[in-house]
Computed example of a mutant assay.
Amino acid sequence: MRIGHTADLVIGLAFAGLGSAIFMVASGFRTFPGMAVSSGLFPKITGTGMIVFGIVMALAAARAARRQTLAPHSGQDAGEQALPTRYAMTVVVALLVLIFAMPIIGFLASGFVFSAFLVRLGGGRWPGALAFALLATIAVYIVFTYGLRVPLPRGPF
């Protein structure tokens, strides 16, 4: 088994385990009066997603390791890239900027800039990036603010 497959298997299982812990802790959260949803809803959704995707990652790693054992070859697998890629690092930096900018300039402005940046980073053109950013930011704002009654950071913009 290659180191990459072993690492993916361990990370997938750890991710699923952490998701299970998050789900169990969130199950004990109490509901606040006047809230449309329980305070544990988002952590439960996050935990469930972590469980599902952690198991998927672990199964994919085990399957890839088994294939390699049955048909060994030298070199990297087709399409496999060395990590971290420039794209991945740029997305992580953009997320960090978003996290620190959102409380200062608000969700609408920071979410719009972040969404447009990601579309451009992925190769999209300016008109599509701006249209997507506008629609995605407004949709997320409406879902959280009016549908779930979860306040988003407000800013001067």
Rank of each mutant, 00 (worst) to 15 (best):
T137Y: 01
T145N: 11
G47M: 07
P72L: 01
G19L: 01
K44S: 15
F144E: 09
V10G: 01
L41C: 05
A26G: 04
L18A: 14
F23H: 11
S115C: 12
A94R: 05
G111W: 06
L108G: 02
I45H: 04
V97N: 09
F29D: 05
V113S: 01
G147S: 04
L118C: 09
I51N: 00
F42S: 05
M102T: 15
F23G: 08
G123A: 07
F144S: 06
A133Y: 10
M1C: 08
V119D: 11
T145D: 11
L83M: 14
F100K: 03
G155R: 04
S20N: 01
S38R: 07
A7R: 00
G124W: 01
L96S: 07
S39Q: 14
P103H: 08
I99S: 11
T46N: 06
V140F: 10
V140S: 07
L70G: 05
M35I: 02
I22H: 04
R154I: 12
F107T: 12
L9R: 05
A101W: 07
T46Q: 06
S115K: 03
L152C: 08
F107E: 07
V92A: 05
V52Y: 01
L59R: 05
A61F: 06
V25E: 15
L18M: 14
R2H: 04
Q76R: 11
G75C: 00
L108K: 01
L108H: 01
